[in-house]
Design a protein around this nucleic acid. Structure first.
Lengths: 143, 143
DNA sequence: CAAGAATACGATATTAACATGAAGTTATCG
DNA sequence: CGATAACTTCATGTTAATATCGTATTCTTG
């Protein structure tokens, strides 16, 4: 459903959202907490910074932190940087017919549309804040 | 959502289901009709044969045809040969938590489960016959 | 039974995703 | 100001999916 990269990004963002007072966490600690390879996560984190989802600081007290409030950050914003999901997705006909799905969608395409929109809606409507409320019981900050 | 290979298989199967009287079609014609590379499609067709979904015949009057009735063939049966979808799918926690989803699923996982099951259900409950009824207006046999 | 037509199958090439390693840059702190 | 810690960036390696090619095998037909 999600690429490994997108899932990595999601885990890292949720880890950061768990930090108390919006404290920043270092890439190394995030890598350990999420189980994502250090250098690979570095790239992903940087992508998230360039997208305005995270902020980074260099130097001794550096690290990453969320640039927005968890409740204002949808999973789609994170995931769509790496995967083709959601509004911009190609959502093309399952059978490869280019013109299908416009007016008068046939029964199968209608059903397919419903199913694939369930996925899109999930990512669009779920925020990182929503995830946090789940994790509160066992969630521990990274650093 | 689907790998290219799974989608190729789906298109080929639907093409074959369109054949009148269960006539067989040759790999070359299927390749042209579906837009799938000839040799690559050959492998996919062979996989479908080994799975019992198609029958093949060699020689001059050879080709491929459905081994089951379109109404008895779900999209899942075709797709699951190539992608990890449906009942056997790993359907693991989005956040990578190994133990989640058992008793007392948290709100997000509940929502995620609903969405991903919508996809599974679509593939499980839709048959190739269902697809055919859509295509009837414009569908033309391969050979 | 020989020729032709089709699938079967293994070897190889290409591409994108995933991952690693090392050197470069910037900020903090003593 | 120098040392250290952290992000940044580029180059490279690995793996799996995708695609191609050539040959072997099998069936039909004349």
């Amino acid at each position: 459903m999600l690429s490994g990269t997108a899932e990595y990004a999601l885990r890292a963002v949720v880890c950061l959202a768990r930090q108390p007072d919006g404290q920043s966490a270092r890439a190394n600690d995030l890598a350990e907490a999420t189980g994502v390879p250090r250098n690979y996560l570095g790239k992903i984190l940087h992508d998230l910074v360039r997208a305005g989802i995270l902020e980074s600081a260099r130097g001794k007290k550096g690290g990453f932190k969320l640039a927005v409030r968890p409740e204002d950050l949808t999973l789609l914003q994170v995931v769509s940087l790496f995967d083709n999901i959601g509004v911009g997705a190609e959502r093309r006909c399952l059978m490869g017919r280019p013109e299908c799905g416009g007016a008068d969608p046939c029964p199968v395409h209608h059903r397919w549309k419903d199913a694939s929109e369930a996925i899109s809606s999930f990512f669009e409507e779920t925020t990182v804040g929503d995830v946090l409320s789940d994790e509160r019981r066992e969630g521990k900050p990274v650093a």
